[in-house]
Amino acid sequence: MKFLCLVHEEPDNGLGPQTEQEAQELVNEHLDYDETLRQSGHWLYAQALQPVETATTVRVRNGKTSITDGPFAETKEVLGGFVMIEAMDMEEAIQIAAGIPSARMGFIHVRRVCEFKSS
């Protein structure tokens, strides 16, 4: 079954990369982990996101599209990316999530994917 690991950052907790070089090392670590998961057959898809300041909110009400800036993180945590994985159960998904490098500086929300069937 599919699980989505939502990778959150906590920019103010001081655990994240402090220099450009550390940031690049973190990116490399993520890419390596993607490769590991790919080889073990768990990896489905993963992406990092542009900073939260680039977020835009789209709503359609009464046929009219409204576009607004944000939302900005009110709390100290921001969604930085996601990894979609194939796992046996929540237990295995948690183990895989714990291996995501950013789990050491932020946290990972693990959500099971809802697989709808059209009727």
Partner: peptide, 8 residues
């Protein structure tokens, strides 16, 4: 562009 805040 409406994706920018009105102030911006």
């Amino acid at each position: 562009h409406p994706a920018l805040s009105p102030d911006a």
